[in-house]
Computed example of a mutant assay.
Amino acid sequence: MECPKCGHVQAGEKECERCGVIFARLQKREEEKSLPSQTETEIPVATARTGSGLTGWAVALLIGLVAGWYMFGQQQKTGGDIAPSREVSSPALEQQGQNPSQPVVRPEGPVQVQTAEGLAGKLAAAFPVGNGLEQARNATVFIKTPWGSGSGFFVSANGYIVTNRHVVEFDAAQLKTLKGKAEKLAGDLERDRRNRAVLERQLAGIRDAGVRRQVEEELQRRQEAYEKYSGMLTEINGQLQRIERSSWSSDIKVILIDGSELPVQSLKMSDRADLALLAVDCYNAPFISPVTDSRHLGQGQKVYSIGNPAGLRHTVTAGIISGYREYKGRKFIQTDAPINPGNSGGPLIDEQGGLIGINTMVLRDTQGIGFAVPFPEVKTEFGQYLGGM
């Protein structure tokens, strides 16, 4: 028979060999109270950056190194532990009507709190659930990879998680750029090493005590700078090796609100949209249901964003729907709910905890202008895996 919980097919008729559910208990519970339906979500974006190195002689060389690596450091703050939301410029964004082509709507009543058993029960014991927002919070996960991190969330009780493709797939173009800048830094450091060697040989012939002292101080400064940036280069090369050797099955970590981790069983990525679908092995995960009734969410409606900005896990922020836009032929929900680095792939929900969209990108050089992918995109991309969502 087929398990009504996880779909596992087996010969036994008393207990599921995969998820452990007792069929008789499940049937009795369903007769007393209907179980909540499954959900869905969407995903978006990320970038990484870097800087240059050493040029010139003596102080000029050091200044160039410091300036270049300052830029590199600023850019790398968005990599490492935090995957930023994608930035776009404004001209390509076009005004749309109040709603996307497939309307985003909100439920008329509060979202039903899901049954407290399995993974949902375990998390609710540590982080009690009293409303739809808290239920969505427990369903949101932290996704960490060798190149950065982001957010995601359960869209079904049997372990499917939606996130951005850029969160789980490192851009090959960015990898090439990072390699190029690492090679440039290595070359700059080698030239500086040779220049210092020349200066050290010249030092032996300097008889003026004052000049000799100045040259010795300059050599010391350059040696310290060389050691500092050599260490940075070692770290970058280590990161490059981790990225090149990484695999989704072993290096992508799904971290729950209680800090526990689940291994990724499968990964599917959209070819058209910045969306990805992960699967983990669990029973009765907390999940976010999409809004499905007939009342449209118009401009000015209050919404909430859940994610892991700057590594601050499971942060909830609020805003409104600012409008609906089109970018590169795709529909987006515009919101002023803060979408910061680390929010990529997290859910945008209404006041009852119903899923509206997936946080994806922010408008460059602005504040309070973020975008989410409407929920129907998830259904379009991954409906064959998510059943009757």
Rank of each mutant, 00 (worst) to 15 (best):
A173Y: 14
I321T: 08
L262G: 00
R212H: 06
E169Y: 04
D293F: 09
G132S: 02
T315L: 05
K379E: 14
A173R: 14
L61Y: 10
Q74Y: 02
A46P: 06
R194I: 05
T177N: 10
A209L: 11
A67D: 13
H296P: 15
R29V: 15
E17G: 07
I161E: 02
V45C: 15
Q384L: 05
A136D: 08
Q75W: 08
L62E: 08
A186R: 03
G323Q: 00
G346F: 01
L61A: 15
L219Y: 02
I243P: 00
V66E: 10
G300T: 06
Q174H: 04
P146I: 10
F371K: 00
R165N: 01
L35V: 11
P290K: 11
G354M: 09
S156P: 01
G159L: 08
A92P: 10
A126M: 12
R242I: 03
E42T: 11
D271V: 13
M71Y: 14
A225V: 02
Q334K: 06
L240H: 00
V168T: 04
Y283V: 13
T366L: 02
I321F: 04
T55D: 14
S260F: 06
K77V: 14
Q112N: 12
H166V: 02
E235K: 09
Q114T: 10
P100V: 03
S246W: 05
A60E: 12
E224T: 06
W248M: 00
R272T: 12
T55N: 12
I288H: 01
G180P: 02
E218Q: 09
D81E: 12
P146C: 08
F23C: 09
A24Y: 03
A173L: 14
L119N: 00
D274Q: 07
L348C: 03
F154Q: 07
S89V: 12
G354A: 07
Y226H: 12
I321R: 06
V373C: 06
F153D: 01
S37Q: 11
C6D: 00
S322H: 02
V21S: 03
G345S: 01
D251K: 00
V291W: 14
P103N: 08
G300V: 08
A310H: 14
G159R: 04
M361V: 08
H296N: 15
N308S: 05
N164Q: 03
Y283H: 11
H296F: 15
E169C: 03
V155R: 01
L133T: 00
G238F: 10
A172Q: 13
A204F: 13
S260T: 07
A60R: 08
A83W: 06
V215L: 05
T50A: 08
F23V: 10
P4I: 03
S305W: 11
G53K: 01
D192L: 15
